[in-house]
Design a protein around this nucleic acid. Structure first.
Lengths: 184, 184
DNA sequence: CTCCGCATGTAAGCTGTTACATGATTCA
DNA sequence: TGAATCATGTAACAGCTTACATGCGGAG
């Protein structure tokens, strides 16, 4: 029930069409909340029916018309209500952890390869986030308000990737040690 | 498509009824993959139809009969196949991060209260995981095989909770500093 | 004239959640 | 007698994914 609210947040930052939103959910806000264009169009329709957003058809030159959505007063009210409501605990769901736990029921070497692949993925993501951090927030000390919010969420992404890298490294090291011990 | 596989893992460790599995998904394996009893019963039926598990009705004294499920050869094969298959990147989905980014569109003080509540939740979870770690793996150095797998997944849980605590602390500190600066 | 990007959708199917249902036994 | 636990489900709905559909304009 949170896609509506993620859309309200994104539209509060700036009015947008369905495709604009789709692109935002492919980066920026998409780093911590993903959605496909099908979901977005469907949800926008429902939100307009509910009066949380309104749309205006905008003609473009050399391109098809687009419907630009904007948050209404009712939408702003709903956003404020949701922001203050308690956030239910979102249990961790990690396919990788299930696989790691199950490694002894299959080919362990292939599971270790999966771990190495994930480690590379997370290193790439960390580099991406750190690049954004250095480009957009070179001096974080003076930040406040909306910019501070953006910065701190990005910091969450950086720390999250660092967590994966550290844990996967511990995992691979431990299994390497256990393996060499077997060999002796 | 991973609940089937989580069930295969759990049944590989030990045969179980639907209710047994439901209880396991409330702790141990449930710390990184959750499922309700409705999901479990529905999925077990499908898996039996597909030949991945077989069931045996076991009479009990003073209790209703139960259906105990067991992994078949086809199920073990499927588990091995799944274990070796690449794991798709699972994008992060955090309602809390959406709220943090949106704090300026609502009552910031209430968002800070949410952050404090989450911090307390994650401290409790960390204490739980560290308790299990000390109780079940007091000397992790000699571990190998299945036990090492269990230990390392638990370490993932510990590190994950540590991540949340560190980040939420950074978040609260940064906003406290920004706030006191406004006051001056 | 074909392919690509823009722009908006529909439809089918699977997964997950919420609510309801049944029948037995044990304990207060 | 009434509540709690054991044990297994059904039904309805909401959410998400995958595939398909349409039509316009510009580039090569």
């Amino acid at each position: 029930m949170a896609l509506e609210h993620a859309i309200l947040v994104s539209l509060s930052e700036r009015a947008a069409s369905g495709l604009d939103l789709t692109r935002r959910f492919d980066k920026s806000i998409g780093y911590f909340w993903t959605a496909s264009h099908q979901q977005i169009y469907r949800t926008l329709s429902r939100m307009e029916k509910d009066g949380w957003v309104r749309s205006e058809v905008v003609a473009q030159q050399g391109r098809p018309d687009k419907k630009v959505y904007d948050v209404t007063a009712a939408g702003r009210e709903e956003l404020g209500r949701w922001l203050a409501a308690p956030t239910p605990a979102q249990p961790l769901r990690s396919e990788l952890m299930v696989k790691f736990r199950a490694a002894s029921y299959g080919d362990r070497e292939q599971v270790l390869d999966l771990a190495r692949a994930k480690l590379a993925e997370h290193r790439d993501l960390l580099a991406l986030y750190e690049g954004i951090e250095q480009r957009d927030f070179p001096k974080p000390d003076g930040l406040a308000g909306r910019e501070l919010d953006m910065y701190l969420v990005l910091r969450g992404g950086v720390r999250m990737e660092q967590f994966w890298i550290d844990w996967l490294t511990e995992y691979l090291d431990a299994h390497t040690r256990a393996h060499t011990k077997d060999e002796r």
